[in-house]
Amino acid sequence: MAAGIRIDPYLVPALDGVAYGLLVFVAAAGLVLCFGVAGILNLAHGTLFAIGGYTAAALLDGGWPSLALALVAGTVAAAAAGALVAGLLTRSAARSHLTQALLTFGVALAGGSLLVGAFGPDDPPVRVPAALDGSVAVVGHRYPAYRLVFIAVAALLAGLLHLAVRRTRAGMLVRAAVDDAEMVAAMGVSPTRIRVGVLAIAGGLAGAAGVLGAPIIGPGTDTADTVLLLSLVVVVLGGLGSMAGTLLAALAVGQIQTLGVALAPSTAPFLLFAAMAVVLAVRARLPLAPRRAT
């Protein structure tokens, strides 16, 4: 234990950082897909996460069935909202990034207003299943059981996502669309279908993250903005389209937001800023490496 004494006080924030980072990764993975495949900067992404969060708050009652129900309902609702965004982004509406940004922001604003109208302006409490409501001992510290389970589940999700993108036909189509959308279209796969599908999957990921992460980043009026900002930072840090880079960036952002706050409470927002500056500056100096699709 002698060697452990010095790092001991920082163990809990570091573990929190892993949970936080994996949560941000699942949310940001959707944004990476949208951005990499469809070239769409979806400013409503945080709102899709909030849909999942509010669903969790409304449905969870402390039992396992309610968690499963909330997960399915939140994922489906957010995926449907993602498909709605894709439907609104017709060829003429998506003609430039400016109109895309305006349209998706309009959806975010209207969606946020509808959510507040439906669930009220206060942050609703979230009840996790009773079996996970306690805490467990981790190297002599009490740590919330839900977060430990969340870390495992989110790591599993990240692994499944990697397998889906690498090994399934749908994942291959998505990667092909990143590399050469016209060639994929010439093979007879409708680009519209890919776009709608990707936005719906991205929405589903955000919704699932919202449900599972509700006890960590709870639903509220600021949730959408917070998640959008963190996801954007993670996507930029992760190299705009690489899943592995996004995962690393998300874990780093998680540590900055938790361990960074514990070590240097007043500088956390500046730390995120500095991390972005360093990564972008270094990348601008390096010769561009050939990009691998997602």
């Binding site: 990499g36 003429s92 003609r95 990034h97 349209l103 309009g106 959806v107």
Partner: peptide, 30 residues
């Protein structure tokens, strides 16, 4: 906020210039 959000969406559809190339540096994708 709801009305404002809908106004954003409607504006995007009403704006002229569907055929013009977007006057933005670089391409849509990085």
């Amino acid at each position: 906020p709801l009305v404002l959000g809908l106004a954003f969406v409607v504006t995007v559809y009403l704006l002229p210039g569907g055929e013009r190339r977007p006057a933005v540096r670089g391409r849509l994708l990085p």
